[in-house]
Structure formats: C-alpha cells, structure tokens
C-alpha cells in the first residue's frame, strides 16, 4: 500500500482509533490503521476539495463525532468527515468480515421482529434530530469549520 508522511500517519492513527471506538465500539487493528492512511494517500487529492473540519479539536476535546458528522452531512454533503466515517465503515467491514454495526446495535442483539424494528427506527429518527442539534452546536461553539 502507498506510503504516507510520518507526522500525518500519527494523526490518522488517532483518528481511526477514535472513530472506531465512538461509532463501532471496537478497536481498530493494525491493518485497518494502515489502510486508513492509505485511503488518505490514494484519495487525498479529492479529499482536499471537500469541506474540511478541524479533526484535532474533535479528538482533543472528545467531541461527539456522530453528531458533528450528521450535522455536516445535512449542510455539506460529501464533506471530509462524512468521507472519513464512510472509509472507517468499509475498514470495519474488512476487519470484522461482517456488516458494520453501531454500539447501540450491538446491544439490540438479535432483534428480528418487524414491529420492534419500526419502533426502533422511530426512536433513531428522534435521536438523529437531537444529534443534529448537538452537532450544530458543537460545530459553531468549537469553531470546527
């Protein structure tokens, strides 16, 4: 896989570790970390044109990455954070060999009832609205753009 500058690689390492923990509730393994760096090299030129976000602040202040991403996605589709999160989902899928799962879903376990699924979807709708507000506040409060 292509090489990446040493300093940048440390930041990317922290980024993927943070996103994996916060979103999927698992640890990113070495291969996923290397692939995450590779992703930034291969698609770097296109990523540079995306609406950026100050990832250092997000990591240092342990902000709600899910909320910020959702807010940005609605305002700036295809923004850098959405791309990073999407890349992490692919890397999770390759690392674990199963479809990516969120931390909440791990707790929902083997839910198979269609009715319960609909109830949970409604709950996710409400939760997403709250996340959107929280994400918006964090973006402006911490000057992330």
């Amino acid at each position: 896989m292509p090489r990446i500058a040493p300093g940048q690689s440390d930041t990317l390492h922290l980024e993927i570790a943070f996103i994996f923990r916060e979103i999927f509730d698992v640890n990113a393994q070495q291969e996923a970390i290397a692939a995450y760096s590779c992703f930034h090299t291969v698609y770097g030129t296109s990523l540079l044109t995306r609406k950026g976000v100050n990832m250092t602040k997000v990591l240092n202040r342990r902000l709600d990455v899910e909320a910020i991403e959702f807010f940005l996605r609605t305002r700036y589709p295809g923004n850098l954070l959405t791309c990073k999160l999407w890349a992490c989902a692919y890397l999770y899928e390759a690392q674990e060999g199963v479809a990516p799962r969120g931390r909440i879903q791990v707790r929902l376990g083997r839910l198979t009832s269609p009715l319960l699924c609909l109830v949970i979807l409604t709950w996710f709708g409400v939760r997403s609205a709250v996340k959107w507000l929280k994400g918006g506040l964090q973006v402006y409060w911490h000057h992330l753009l």
Binding site: I23, R73, A89, R101, R127, S128, W132
Partner: peptide, 18 residues
C-alpha cells in the same frame, strides 16, 4: 451506509436490520 436519513448509528442499524 449513507443511503439512509439518520445519524451514523441509525444508518448502521438500517444496514443490519433494514
């Protein structure tokens, strides 16, 4: 992943159950 209208956790739920 981003074909559903929720925040990441909701969309991940959709991938698994929808």
């Amino acid at each position: 992943l981003f074909d559903f209208p929720f925040s990441a956790s909701g969309n991940l739920f959709c991938l698994a159950k929808i």
